[in-house]
Nucleic acid binder design. Structure first.
Lengths: 126, 126
DNA sequence: CTTTTATATCCATTATTCTGGAAATATGGA
DNA sequence: TCCATATTTCCAGAATAATGGATATAAAAG
């Protein structure tokens, strides 16, 4: 994910209705949710919510598919993973968030300094 | 970090000039950078940049201190850490980004599924 | 083919954000 | 005190985003 792409994703998540909608979709997992359920869940008018869902979709952090009369929206977790990776690599310090590959497990390991630990107070630089 | 706070941070990072300014500050580390250096580095007029720095500052992801005639801005890495934690916990799935405490090390360990690994394709749910 | 249900699109209004010129503030130096 | 430097604040215009009523589209059901 490049810098321009990431501003688009941040922008998508920067509005309360959209972030709440996205979190409902995260909870819903891979089953997703029809637009109407999100609209009802948030108490947001259907056309307003549709606008925001389109926004999330354009940013690429949700996808959608038709199922009968409903449109099912789904969180795009791979994009979230990329966003987390970008924040760690390009928007934080090694002391606070350090990332390395674990090829055996097929994942990256991030060490995130704890909030109130001695480590996060006494930052060893260099 | 709560949901409302996180929209404010996302909003701060959702604008290209601001994200670029923030990344300069991340690079600069704990020394920070004077406003003028950021303005010059980005080729953005000094008053426009001041507006954006205030925005970043209000969101809490940068802090500032005066040093002589200059105002030195600094990235707030602890807030970035909190944001990364929030994205992992509340905006992603356990299969893609899983977090656990390592009390000995005084940090949280995040396992982030790799982009093209088998694990990220074959998602085991439940 | 008409009706019902689910959702998107069109459109106008309102609200918010971005931009940069001009002026103000704060610091340090002659 | 007067000047130069660094930065912010004020302001107004321009651009962009959000909102919701009305209408359109799409699918299923009768």
């Amino acid at each position: 994910m490049d810098i321009e792409k990431s501003t688009i994703v941040f922008n998508a998540l920067s509005q309360e209705t959209r972030l709440k909608a996205f979190r409902l979709l995260v909870e819903a997992g891979s089953d997703g949710l029809p637009a109407g359920a999100i609209s009802e869940g948030l108490g947001t008018p259907q056309n307003t919510l549709s606008f925001h869902l389109t926004h999330l979709s354009n940013a690429g952090i949700v996808s959608s598919r038709r199922k009968g009369r409903s449109i099912i929206y789904m969180a795009n977790f791979e994009m979230m993973r990329d966003l987390i990776g970008l924040l760690v690599k390009d928007c934080c310090s090694r002391e606070v968030a350090n990332i390395r590959q674990d090829k055996k497990k097929g994942c990256s390991i991030i060490e995130l300094a704890d909030c109130c630990s001695p480590q996060s107070k006494t930052v060893a630089r260099g």
